[in-house]
Amino acid sequence: ETGKELVLALYDYQEKSPREVTMKKGDILTLLNSTNKDWWKVEVNDRQGFVPAAYVKKL
């Protein structure tokens, strides 16, 4: 879809709370919100949640 910003997972991340999502290094995720410098909201496999901003980079 146009207008979607994507990020690349630089590291594996295992969710530690229900508000977070698990990702694997190399995953491409849809970026939903990056206003917080530490935690970015992403969508992966129809799930939305937060990942550490340092673990992903914008494509």
Rank of each mutant, 00 (worst) to 15 (best):
E1C: 15
E1S: 15
E1I: 13
E1Y: 03
E1A: 14
E1V: 13
E1P: 14
T2D: 13
T2M: 13
T2N: 14
T2A: 14
G3Q: 15
G3H: 14
G3C: 15
G3V: 14
G3P: 13
K4R: 13
K4W: 11
K4D: 07
K4Q: 11
K4A: 12
K4Y: 12
K4V: 13
K4L: 13
E5Y: 11
E5K: 09
E5W: 11
E5I: 15
E5H: 12
E5V: 15
E5A: 11
L6H: 09
L6Y: 15
L6I: 08
L6D: 04
L6T: 08
L6C: 12
L6M: 09
L6K: 11
V7G: 14
V7A: 11
V7T: 03
V7R: 01
V7I: 08
L8R: 09
L8A: 06
L8E: 12
L8M: 14
L8S: 05
L8Q: 12
A9W: 02
A9S: 05
A9R: 00
L10G: 02
L10Q: 04
L10D: 02
L10C: 09
L10T: 05
L10E: 04
L10S: 03
L10P: 00
Y11E: 10
Y11M: 10
Y11P: 00
Y11D: 08
Y11Q: 13
Y11S: 09
Y11A: 11
D12K: 03
D12F: 04
D12R: 03
D12W: 03
D12L: 02
D12M: 03
Y13G: 01
Y13P: 01
Y13Q: 00
Y13K: 00
Y13A: 01
Q14T: 14
Q14H: 14
Q14C: 11
Q14G: 07
E15V: 06
E15Y: 04
E15D: 04
E15T: 08
E15W: 05
E15K: 13
K16Q: 14
K16M: 12
K16C: 11
K16I: 07
K16H: 08
K16G: 10
K16F: 05
S17F: 06
S17W: 06
S17H: 11
S17Y: 06
P18L: 09
P18A: 11
P18F: 08
P18D: 13
P18W: 10
P18E: 10
P18Q: 09
P18S: 11
P18I: 09
P18T: 10
R19Y: 13
R19E: 12
R19V: 09
R19T: 12
E20K: 04
E20P: 04
E20Y: 05
E20L: 05
E20G: 12
V21N: 03
V21D: 00
V21P: 01
V21L: 15
V21S: 02
V21F: 11
V21T: 06
V21H: 03
V21I: 13
T22A: 07
T22Q: 04
T22R: 05
T22M: 04
M23N: 00
M23A: 02
M23G: 00
M23S: 01
M23V: 10
M23Q: 02
M23W: 01
K24L: 08
K24R: 13
K24D: 04
K24M: 09
K24A: 08
K24T: 08
K25F: 05
K25A: 13
K25L: 05
K25R: 10
K25H: 06
K25G: 05
K25D: 02
K25I: 06
K25E: 07
K25C: 08
K25V: 07
G26S: 03
G26Q: 02
G26A: 03
G26H: 05
G26K: 02
G26I: 01
G26P: 00
G26M: 03
D27H: 05
D27A: 07
D27E: 12
D27L: 05
D27T: 07
D27F: 04
I28Q: 05
I28G: 00
I28N: 02
I28F: 06
I28C: 07
I28A: 03
L29T: 01
L29R: 01
L29H: 03
L29C: 10
L29Q: 01
L29K: 00
L29G: 13
T30P: 15
T30I: 15
T30A: 11
T30N: 08
L31H: 01
L31T: 01
L31G: 01
L31C: 07
L31W: 01
L31N: 01
L31A: 02
L31S: 01
L32V: 12
L32I: 14
L32E: 02
L32M: 07
L32C: 07
N33W: 07
N33P: 03
S34Y: 07
S34H: 08
S34Q: 10
S34L: 04
S34R: 07
S34F: 06
S34K: 07
T35E: 15
T35W: 10
T35M: 09
T35P: 04
T35N: 14
T35L: 09
T35Y: 09
T35S: 14
T35F: 09
T35K: 13
N36C: 11
N36A: 08
N36Y: 08
N36Q: 09
N36E: 11
N36M: 09
K37E: 11
K37A: 13
K37C: 10
K37S: 12
K37W: 07
K37N: 12
K37M: 10
K37D: 11
K37V: 11
D38P: 02
D38A: 11
D38I: 14
D38L: 14
D38M: 12
W39G: 00
W39F: 07
W39K: 02
W39Y: 07
W39D: 01
W39Q: 03
W40I: 05
W40E: 01
W40T: 03
W40D: 00
W40S: 03
W40L: 05
W40G: 00
W40K: 01
W40Q: 01
W40P: 01
K41H: 12
K41S: 07
K41Y: 15
K41E: 13
K41I: 14
K41T: 08
K41W: 15
K41C: 14
V42E: 00
V42Y: 01
V42D: 00
V42L: 04
V42P: 00
E43V: 10
E43H: 06
E43T: 07
E43C: 12
E43W: 07
E43Q: 13
E43M: 11
E43D: 07
V44H: 15
V44M: 15
V44D: 11
V44E: 04
V44S: 15
V44Q: 15
V44A: 15
N45P: 13
N45H: 14
N45D: 14
D46L: 09
D46W: 06
D46M: 10
D46F: 09
R47V: 07
R47A: 06
R47E: 05
R47C: 06
Q48F: 08
Q48M: 10
Q48H: 09
Q48E: 10
Q48P: 05
Q48K: 10
Q48T: 10
Q48L: 07
Q48V: 14
G49A: 03
G49D: 00
G49W: 03
G49C: 03
G49P: 01
G49S: 02
G49M: 05
F50K: 03
F50A: 03
F50Y: 15
F50E: 04
F50N: 04
F50G: 01
F50C: 13
F50D: 04
F50R: 03
V51L: 02
V51I: 09
V51T: 02
V51Q: 00
V51G: 00
V51R: 00
V51M: 01
P52N: 02
P52I: 02
P52Y: 02
P52T: 02
P52W: 03
A53Q: 06
A53H: 03
A53Y: 02
A53E: 03
A53S: 13
A53C: 06
A54E: 10
A54R: 15
A54P: 08
A54H: 12
A54I: 10
A54K: 14
A54N: 13
A54M: 11
A54C: 14
A54D: 12
Y55K: 09
Y55C: 13
Y55T: 09
Y55P: 02
Y55F: 13
Y55N: 07
V56Q: 00
V56P: 02
V56H: 01
K57C: 15
K57Q: 14
K57L: 12
K57D: 08
K57V: 15
K57E: 14
K57N: 06
K58A: 09
K58P: 10
K58D: 05
L59Q: 05
L59T: 06
L59A: 05
L59N: 04
L59R: 03
L59I: 14
L59V: 11
